[in-house]
Every structure is written in C-alpha cells, then in structure tokens.
C-alpha cells in the first residue's frame, strides 16, 4: 500500500539524498571536466568542487549552503489510491527535512519579506503533477539554487528567425550569466508552447541524466551543438576561464502558436541536485538516482 506516511518518509529521504550527494551522471561529468580542463584556475575550481562533494557525502552535510527552493515532480499511476493525500505528505516532508537534514529556510513572502522558516509557503514546495498509466508513484525532488535561477531567461523570439534565433539566445544567456550561476552549469532549453510551457519544459529537461542524449537524433545534434557553443565562450569553471562552462545541454519542445517562438533557458549550477524514487503498490521502494543501503 502506498500510504501518506510512506510518501512522507520517502520524500524526506529524497531531500536528504539530493542535498548531500550528487547523482552518478553529474559526478561523472564533473570528474571528467576536472581531468580534461586545461585552464589552471578552472582546474583548481573543479578540484575544489570534487573535494567538497566528497566531504559532503562523508559528513552527510549539504554540499552547498543554498539548499534551494524545493520543487517536486510526481508521476502518479492512475490506479494509485489516495492521490489527494500526497500534497500534504510532500509539504510535511519538506518541513521535516528542513529541521532534520537541515536545509536552509528559503521560502520568503515577496511582499512582507518574511521567511516562513520551514521551506513551505504559498505554492512552495511546488509540485509538478503528471498522471501516467499504472499503479506506481514516482517522486523526484529538485532543490533549485538561487544563483543559477537568477540567470534563467525567456525570449519571445520572432518565428521568422527560427532555430538560429534560439541558438543565439542560448549563447547570449550563457555569456550574460558569466560567473554568476556557479559554472560549470547544465542548461535546460525548451522552445514552443507558450511562455509558461517553454520554461516548465526547460526546467524539467534538467532532470534527464547527462549521459542520456536526446532520443530524437535532430535534437541530440542540437544539444551537442549548443554544448560546444557554450563551452567555446571560455567562461570556464566559476567564471575564471576554461573549457568547461557547461556540463550538458538538454533540449525539449512543444508545438507553438504560428505567431510565437518562445525560447526558455533554465540554468542549473554545478550542484545539480535531484533525487528520485518509485513506490510500488506493495510498499516496496526503489531509489532511482542514488544507492541506498
């Protein structure tokens, strides 16, 4: 049985795993960048990132002081019972994790500037719902840091310029961001739909592991092209110069209005934190991004 309690416990665990240990694909990409980086300053920064990552794992402390705004992605099987209890469970989990892990309280009222102190507030944690066939419940958490969030960009481009405009917009976003989003970054890029749809898809694209190229060969080619373009800027790790400004680019799209060409770029910092688990109807829990002993 999938119960409110089991969902809450799993979500607390996912929050803990996400902030203390990077998923394998991100770890590997950072290690590879450190091996291949040619700029001295860039290499020093990447080494520090790897040392920090290992220490965080060993001491079970958050790898970055900014433990982000909490975003959940829930893939709920249509046959799962008690879906109306899940939101409450995820909010409870967020409050608990804030105390137990601990997480930095990052939910501030935009009018009174008051911090709620427990990472919950209006629409926060934010939950992205997807109803899928089946009887399992898949929960992903993405704690999203503020430094990289501040350089996310949306362009409502001219359809006449098309995909070339998209490419230029991505390069401009990377250059304008410079050192600010703690590079090397991961870029989620999405085009089409509408302003909100493009940004939502761009952010969700960040969840696809770095070692998984786009299943659409044309988009896989575009991802590679954008990856090479971003890295030829020379911004490098922490903006100190070098080959690795991004670790990967993930592209997604929706069909668009004939008059619109929305392009969204979601920027993720090197601390690209995410954790997922699947809960089965018999209560079995499978962790998808982390080894859990």
């Amino acid at each position: 049985m999938i119960t409110k309690n089991s969902v809450e416990d799993v979500a607390v665990k996912l929050l803990y795993l996400a902030v203390t240990e990077l998923p394998q694909d991100v770890k590997k990409a950072l290690q590879q960048a450190c091996r291949e980086e040619e700029s001295e300053a860039g290499k020093t920064q990447l080494k520090a990132i790897l040392d920090n990552m290992e220490l965080a794992e060993k001491t079970r402390t958050p790898m970055c002081q900014d433990t982000g705004v909490i975003i959940f992605y829930v893939k709920a099987g249509g046959q799962v019972k008690g879906l109306d209890k899940i939101e409450k469970a995820l909010r409870n989990a967020t409050v608990r994790a804030t105390k137990e892990v601990p997480l930095r309280p990052n939910a501030v009222d935009p009018f009174t500037q008051k911090n709620t102190g427990d990472n919950t507030g209006r629409f926060i944690p934010f939950i992205n719902w997807e109803i899928v066939p089946g009887d399992t419940l898949e929960i992903t958490v993405m704690p999203k840091g503020g430094g990289s969030e501040n350089v996310c960009a949306l362009g409502m481009l001219s359809p006449g310029i098309g995909v070339n405009g998209l490419k230029k917009f991505v390069v401009d976003t990377v250059i304008n961001a410079g050192a600010k989003p703690c590079p090397p970054n991961i870029l989620g890029v999405a085009v089409g739909g509408g302003a909100d749809i493009a940004m939502k898809l761009a952010k969700a694209a960040l969840l696809r592991p770095l070692d998984q190229p786009n299943p659409d060969p044309n988009l896989a080619k575009l991802e590679k092209e954008l990856y090479e373009a971003a890295n030829s800027t020379g911004i490098g790790p922490m903006g100190l110069g070098g080959k690795f400004t991004v670790l990967g680019v993930k592209v997604d799209y929706a069909h668009r209005h004939p008059a619109s060409y929305p392009v969204a770029v979601a920027v993720q910092c090197w601390a690209a934190r995410r954790a997922s688990a699947r809960i089965y109807p018999d209560g079995k829990i499978e962790y998808l991004t982390h080894k859990v002993v």
């Binding site: 990132i49 040392d51 958050p62 790898m63 970055c64 002081q65 703690c182 100190l240």
Partner: peptide, 13 residues
C-alpha cells in the same frame, strides 16, 4: 581570492 561558489563544506572544514 576566488573561492569556489557553493563549496560550503570545504570552507566549513
């Protein structure tokens, strides 16, 4: 001196 952004554990140590 540029310190690695986000490397909070390394700093605390």
């Amino acid at each position: 001196g540029a310190f690695t952004g986000g490397a909070a554990v390394l700093a605390a140590k």
